[in-house]
């Protein structure tokens, strides 16, 4: 189960907001050098304020814009354990699944949550909770393959463990 403090963001947070395009080339070898810039224009000093396990709760179309995968990778590196949003841009969604960052679609939680609340995401039983507000919302279960990828911590880990992506075993 995922449990952490809430960072509340609005609608249409783009991958440019998460990590500006201008840092891509200056840091090809290490994502580490991009860490100070994660969400810097949205929450100044975010990389210092965030703690391991924290959950981002946002509105519609989270992760819109560029396909840069550095965006979800950096969120995971700085300690974000899940993103709960009303909807996701599809490339961000796929990227997040691939790198093992749970992305959860929920409609009410983003409305009731505030920064600092305690959020729980229970992927097994399909529930997101705002513990502080005493509110919970059911989420639709992930398709089998996506659940399997998230469970192993990402597609690369999955392939290392089982030798091939989950769908090569049977779906089609």
């Amino acid at each position: 189960m995922i449990r952490g403090r809430c960072w509340k963001l609005g609608d249409n947070v783009s991958t440019d907001h998460i990590i500006s395009g201008k840092y891509k080339f200056s840091a090809i070898d290490s994502l580490d050098s991009m860490i100070p810039h994660v969400l810097e224009e949205v929450i100044p000093g975010f990389h210092e304020k965030v703690s391991r396990g924290d959950v981002i709760v946002a509105g519609r179309n989270f992760g819109k814009g560029s396909s840069r995968e550095q965006a979800p990778r950096l969120l995971k590196i700085v300690g974000v354990s899940a993103v709960v949003a009303k909807s996701f841009a599809h490339i961000f969604y796929r990227n997040a699944v691939n790198i093992g960052l749970p992305v959860v679609v929920a409609q009410r939680i983003p409305e009731v949550s505030e920064t600092g609340d305690i959020i729980e995401v229970d992927l097994e039983s399909g529930v997101v909770r705002n513990v502080t507000k005493g509110f919970e919302e059911r989420i639709s279960p992930f398709p089998r393959e996506i659940a399997a990828i998230l469970k192993t911590g990402g597609i690369v880990e999955y392939i290392k463990l089982y030798g091939a992506p989950p769908w090569l075993g049977g779906t089609g």
Partner: peptide, 8 residues
């Protein structure tokens, strides 16, 4: 898609 998707 993103880079990992393309890589796969």
């Amino acid at each position: 898609v993103g880079s990992t998707d393309a890589a796969i």
